[in-house]
Computed example of a mutant assay.
Amino acid sequence: MVAATAPSGPAASRRAPSPAVVTGASSGIGEAAAEKLASLGARVVVLARRADRLRDLVERIAENGGTALALTVDVTDPAAVQDAADRVEAELGGADLLFNNAGVMLPSPIEERAAGQWQRQIDLNATGLMNVIGAFTPHLVRAGRERGVADLINTSSIAARNIFPHFAVYSGTKAYVTHLSHHLRTELGPKGVRVSAIEPGIVGTELQSHVTDQGTIDWLEDSRKSMDWLTPQDIAETIGFLAALPPRVDLQQVTIMPTAQTA
């Protein structure tokens, strides 16, 4: 266990996770969260498909005095995810924080029947999430028992609750993430595992570059002109805050919006 720096009083009970596993770590929120957790003293394990991006991230964390291990993993491959979990256990003694962040956003009008995009979102946002949760939950339960607290943090979206044209499938996957997180909290909370769902509004990441629906592209461009979007670092700060809370405190759902975003 690596304690976060704190002078005295309630803040002294805060702790940084070690090791902390971050999926979707090759860019955006996952990348920023890995750097934030490393800055708090966590040994970070970063998972994603792009080995070159992970290598650069590990080097940058090391240059800033942190420690990170890169594992090239596609979270939609359950065997690869389990292999990664086994390696984390063998080499680092298991994880006490899991930030489930891998995901994709591919909005389109339902009449277009973009079945490939539908399946990609379900495979990554829901099934991939479950692959990772299944593989690492034993680590978290053991950490909760032995260290007093562990964390499972899942990236959902404001789309889990709000209504946006062309986002039906994406929103459905994120509603699943939020609802699942609430259920898991009832199972895992009594075992010392805090479960949180993070629901960001618009964050400037690579997600927008994957969008092919012209109506959504136009909407995103208009919103960029009318408001300051959140940055990945904004979300990373929140992940660091959650991880450093006293063990008795669990924020089960956190909604983070750009100040000017109203829906």
Rank of each mutant, 00 (worst) to 15 (best):
T5D: 05
G9P: 02
A12H: 09
R15G: 10
R15Q: 11
P19V: 07
A20G: 14
V21G: 14
V21T: 11
E31K: 03
E31I: 02
A32F: 15
G41S: 02
R43V: 06
R43W: 00
R43Q: 07
V45K: 07
R50G: 14
A51F: 04
L57V: 10
T67P: 09
A70F: 01
D74T: 05
D77T: 07
P78Y: 07
A79S: 09
A85N: 07
R87T: 14
R87G: 07
A90W: 00
G93T: 08
G94H: 10
L97V: 06
V104Q: 08
L106H: 08
R113A: 13
R113V: 07
A114S: 10
W118F: 09
Q119N: 12
Q121L: 08
D123V: 02
L124N: 05
L129N: 05
M130S: 11
N131P: 01
N131W: 06
N131Y: 01
G134N: 09
T137N: 10
T137K: 13
A143I: 02
R145S: 13
T155F: 04
A160Q: 02
R161E: 14
P165D: 07
P165Y: 07
Y170P: 04
S171Y: 10
T173D: 13
K174P: 07
K174M: 12
H182Q: 03
R185E: 08
L188V: 04
L188M: 05
P190W: 13
K191L: 12
V195D: 01
S196F: 00
A197G: 09
G204F: 01
E206D: 15
E206Q: 14
G215E: 03
I217K: 03
D218Y: 03
E221F: 01
T231Q: 14
D234M: 04
I235T: 14
I239S: 08
I239P: 06
F241M: 08
A243L: 03
A243P: 12
P246K: 05
V249H: 04
L251F: 15
L251N: 05
Q252E: 15
Q253M: 09
T255N: 07
